[in-house]
Computed example of a mutant assay.
Amino acid sequence: MSITIRELCNDTYHFVSKEIKTIVFISILATFISILINILIKPDLHIISIIENKNFENSHSIFDLIHNMNLYEKKELLKYSIFKMLEFLINKTFLLGSIITFIKYLSNGKKESFVSSIYYLIKFLPSLFILNFITIIAIQIGFMFFILPGIFLSILLSLSPIILSFKNNNLIDSIRLSFSVSYKNLNIIGTSILFWICIKFIFTTILSNNYLIGKNFIFLILNINMNIFFSILIIYLFRFYMLSIRSEKN
């Protein structure tokens, strides 16, 4: 049985339209976790002002900007970068884990209790956090050298969190199988990832250059929307993986 993008889009649309309230709720909850982390761990305001006021304009590159910083500013920038990466990792891990657990809960026909699903999510999150850390580092290294390797790695690693949920937290097998399946289906996986990257770029560009709305409100709206679109992407990829397993069995 061949899997088509149209079939996947229709399945994703029907699932999202049916469960939109839960998807929005999980997306909002993930956003508020990010806000809470921002409130609890606040980095040096001077470094934030350097980044937010776009002091990159007088520098030819990020390396040039770092070179012109003093030792204290370099340390604070490093702390800020680690803080932002942790915030992103926690947000992504919670969102991914919650959506995958929710889909599996519905896929099992709600045979498992809600409490057992929560217990599964708690057990799943640590392994998912490590996997996200590995994949994000790999993808960022790809983007540092050239844009295309970063996009290519994003495509090849996109199925790894979903596969992890079926592989009893086996990280290596999840990454290896994600490479194999994604490479064989570059057109289906690649289209969805590129579409997600375009949406992210458009939303970030539009909202970041909007000076009529407060920064905190922009952060809230941007994060909720990005989380919703990312959830839809995960549903699409999850459905694809389920269909690919079914076609292999047949």
Rank of each mutant, 00 (worst) to 15 (best):
N132T: 03
I218N: 07
N169V: 03
I218K: 09
Y120P: 00
F179Q: 00
I202K: 10
L186Q: 15
S165L: 13
I122K: 04
Y13K: 13
P126M: 02
I155W: 02
I189K: 15
F133C: 11
I66W: 11
I172Q: 03
L207G: 10
A30V: 11
S247T: 04
I136D: 08
H46G: 07
I136V: 14
I130S: 01
L71W: 12
G214Q: 09
Y13G: 07
Y80H: 09
I99T: 06
F166T: 13
I39A: 11
E76C: 11
V24L: 05
I199K: 03
L125Q: 07
F129R: 01
I221L: 15
S107T: 05
I39F: 14
L212H: 12
T205P: 01
N38P: 02
D11W: 03
S117H: 05
T205Q: 04
L131T: 12
N70E: 04
S158A: 09
I235M: 10
S2F: 02
F83T: 05
F238M: 01
K123T: 13
I130N: 00
A30T: 14
I37P: 00
S154V: 01
K215L: 12
N169S: 06
E19W: 14
M85H: 03
F179M: 04
N68A: 15
F166Y: 14
I213E: 00
F201V: 06
M85V: 10
E52N: 06
M69W: 10
M85I: 12
E73P: 10
E112W: 00
S174C: 10
N225T: 15
L212I: 11
F217T: 15
S182R: 00
L96H: 07
S2H: 12
I39H: 09
S17I: 02
S192C: 11
G97F: 00
S244M: 06
I37K: 00
I23H: 02
I137M: 12
N187G: 01
N58Q: 11
S81G: 13
L96R: 03
S61I: 02
H60M: 10
N170H: 03
N250S: 05
S178M: 07
G214N: 08
L65F: 14
Q140P: 03
L157Y: 00
F240W: 13
N108M: 01
I234P: 00
Y72F: 05
L125R: 09
M69H: 01
F124G: 00
L128R: 02
I37C: 03
I5Y: 09
I206K: 06
V181I: 13
F146I: 06
K21S: 14
L186H: 08
M85R: 01
F102E: 06
L8N: 04
V115M: 04
W196T: 05
I141W: 07
L8E: 05
I51D: 11
P161Y: 08
I35W: 09
V181H: 05
Q140K: 14
S116E: 15
G142P: 10
I199W: 01
I197T: 07
L212W: 06
L222R: 08
D173S: 13
N250E: 12
T22E: 01
F25Y: 11
F195S: 14
L106K: 15
I139D: 02
E76Y: 01
L8Y: 13
L71E: 15
S165E: 01
K167I: 04
